[in-house]
Design a binder for these strands. Structure first.
Lengths: 232, 232
DNA sequence: TGTATGTACTTGTATATACAAGTTGTTTGA
DNA sequence: TCAAACAACTTGTATATACAAGTACATACA
């Protein structure tokens, strides 16, 4: 059962999606939504406020709330399997599983993955190679409830990403990209010096049921770049 | 007169800024804030909710609200002025113009900017500061035909990005992100050691008339991260 | 000892209400 | 005619309240 403010959000989004409301059009005022949906003004307000925060709507005091302009905003990072990425370049992909085990969630991890501290998590560490050279060290935690057979997978034939996308299709993701010096063990796994900068991507992926996985991906700075293209 | 929920937000931000609360620390619960500031729970809640939306705090039902990792994040999906990015975090932006001149296009640059080798280009070098700390070294080449008054701008009041977007609205962009060690002169401008990794973004921006600008943006790895969110 | 239960906390959702503040159009009055 | 005042709308801020849902810990019980 969805929260009522979520239902109102969906109703508005559907109308925009269907073209019933176009950019610049006025959406019902808080009071109109209050009557239409039989909720209090604060609930209607919450729906509008969140849509404004998400960039879908714009509002001005005294005037009203409106559908904002279309922002096509193609995402610059599509989430692709490292395997596809490498083979698409015509190169050979191989990988080595370093660890595959069940662990207990520490405090930090429990917050990131929205589980209780001490809950079971699956943990995998895999190094990916492109033409024999290490190109990614993947340190990943997985929610066992959403991917119960994770530990039984043969990651030499299917990447974690591919598997997770199969059992719990992605609906959302957020990620952070940073430049850093690798810890000693990371440097060793990537076969680089500790003074070689790394590109690190920390990514949480969501399915409809919640956080599926938290992955930290380390790439040797001199062997890997991220590219993207934006249209406006 | 600031709204009370804004005052509470500021109070919390100041404590984080001052180091009284560090990443992972617990912030007062809604009820504690209610007593401490003499406001209703909904008002305290609004302060926390907005800080969560801004990525400053994280919260879990039944557990509490915590300070999240405090390094600045910028959305990687949109091209924004570094000035907006910094002021939106409530921080102070300043910058220093190192160079502003007309140069001849070298071979490499002529290809990147789709001009003839030897053609005139405008070249600027600017260091941007967040609360006095260098956060971006911007090395930019501009097509004079599309932004003829570029050299006359006062970049202390308008960033190159803002100006270019005004005279030649962006239609497209592509960029490459990489981790690297800074050259000596870059390290010096960012006031970091040459052994400190940098996040480098190389970006070409297009308007309807063609390539407007080619920029190389260097950020200290330990002071800057790129963040993004994807929906499917 | 181990398990269930209760309690006290946390955040999440929802309502009803009040007044402030900004905008627009109409009406009133000089 | 023109300008001030007003009314009717909008969103913005703030309170008091209630219950739901998730977590943690102590306590009671078998």
């Amino acid at each position: 059962m969805l929260a009522r403010y979520s239902q109102i959000k969906l109703a508005i989004l559907e109308q925009i999606e269907a073209g019933d409301m176009r950019p610049g059009d006025r959406v019902p005022s808080e009071n109109q939504l209050t009557e239409e949906f039989g909720v209090s003004r604060m609930t209607a307000r919450r729906a509008l406020t969140e849509l404004v925060d998400e960039g879908i709507l714009m509002r001005s005091q005294g005037i009203g709330t409106f559908v904002s302009d279309d922002r096509p905003m193609s995402s610059m990072l599509t989430i692709r399997s490292i395997h596809d990425e490498i083979t698409q370049r015509g190169h050979q992909h191989s990988c080595q599983v370093i660890q595959l085990a069940e662990v207990k969630a520490c405090h930090q991890m429990s917050i990131w993955m929205s589980v209780t501290e001490g809950d079971s998590l699956y943990h995998s560490q895999i190094v990916h190679f492109e033409n024999g050279k290490a190109i990614q060290f993947e340190d990943r935690f997985v929610n066992p409830l959403l991917a119960p057979a994770y530990l039984q997978q043969n990651f030499l034939t299917i990447t974690p990403n591919q598997y997770l996308n199969k059992v719990a299709p992605l609906t959302e993701a957020d990620h952070v990209i940073e430049a850093m010096l690798p810890a000693m063990d990371v440097a060793q796994k990537l076969d680089i010096a500790v003074s070689q900068p790394c590109l690190k991507i920390s990514r949480r992926t969501f399915s409809a049921q919640g956080v599926v996985s938290y992955a930290q991906l380390y790439h040797p700075g001199h062997r890997y770049r991220l590219g993207g293209h934006l249209d406006f």
